[in-house]
Nucleic acid binder design. Sequence first.
RNA 1: GCACAGGUGGCCGAGCGGUUAAUGGCAGCAGACUGUAAAUCUGCCGCUCCUUGCGAGCUACGGAGGUUCGAAUCCUCCCCUGUGCA
Length: 384
Amino acid sequence: MSLQFNLIRETPSGGRRAQMLLPHQTVETPVFMPVGTAGSVKAVPQDTVEALGAQIILGNTYHLYLRPGHEAIRRMGGLHRFISWPRAMLTDSGGFQVYSLTQLRKISDNGVEFRSHLDGSLHTFTPEHSMDVQIALGADICMAFDECTEYPATRDRARESLRLTMLWARRSLDHFRAHQHEVPWANDSVPQVSNLRHGIEDRTQSLFGIVQGGVYTDLRRESAARLVEMDFDGYAIGGLSVGEPREATLEVISEVLPLLPKDKPRYVMGVGYPDEIEQYARLGVDMMDCVLPTRAARHGLLFTSLGRMNIKNKQYAEDQNPPDPACDCMVCRRYSRAYLRHLMQAGEPLAGTLNSIHNLAYYLGIMQRVRDSLAQPAPTSAIP
RNA sequence: GCACAGGUGGCCGAGCGGUUAAUGGCAGCAGACUGUAAAUCUGCCGCUCCUUGCGAGCUACGGAGGUUCGAAUCCUCCCCUGUGCA
């Protein structure tokens, strides 16, 4: 058992308030995980990500393998130490790149040949290789190597994609179990590995399986059942928010969640808009990640209690109000809409930084409120 | 004063007789963004009108004339800018 998942409270609608004990952090769930693909939550320094209350962030296996290289990171003590992030990390396996780098890769049962987007060089990713890279990086949670199925996909296509993902899941798990002791901080006593109270068992990496199957609920159910049988440390639902209608996303999540073990974390990958992450968390999703708050921020889109705000718009040119009057983040406390708009207009890098800080604060704030709400005892109808 | 080189839409800058309201870039205006090939991408960007369309009209490549069926593109004169020589 690599990971301890303590359920604190569960609501009738399935929402769960829990704690997930990881080597570098006790993560309060449901949790939103900022994405730090190339070893950085883009535009936001680590101390700020920490100050915002992020408990766990993502890294990406494919990107870090290409640059600076997983062996280099291993030699430097692992990803946590390399990027100076003391809390938990999760690495995506490269499965999303199988989907997003469609012009640059070739898939076979064995794995995927990628043409590097950096220099055109050829690289082969197999489930075993993805595990080796992820173990070298040393994130608290690793992900099985999967194929993120595109949308739309025919049933045949989704089935074939699922077959591959299940095959790779088995190989990922076998290889991971055989090598997870090789994590760079296995015998570490540096401050980064601070969660010693969990005991030695908690100081190992965990591996999550990924449910695929497109928008076909029977394929999704089959996928979930087979993964549960394999016994992963946690389960993710992947292949969502790739263009399908939102009702389809919800349907897949609703179908799959009840099939996953209650005593293990459930992670919906790559979602979503602010209202989505709240909705899914209340349905029992424990973990979510999304590039949206940071990417949109760099492009001038702020998520606020008033809705979406494109801070580049002329209407904010002399608007001295804080971006979100209801927000008490370090950006909203200090800067005006007019200034943020000016920074965007001027192409100042600070624009992306400040916007990202606000959006992350907004996302993390939503999850904090959801956690608080889930922790409340269910109101009783009995009247004394 | 003379000799070259130039004056193009908010700016820079193509075009050098006809599919030119005029390539590009910048600026401007708006939109998109969901396990990050994204500080990116897309659309609009002279004015007016409407049955919003590969629509109609008007204005426009320093100024004024001219050549031509047709001129930002050729000719003449003038104005202005830069460089060189006096």
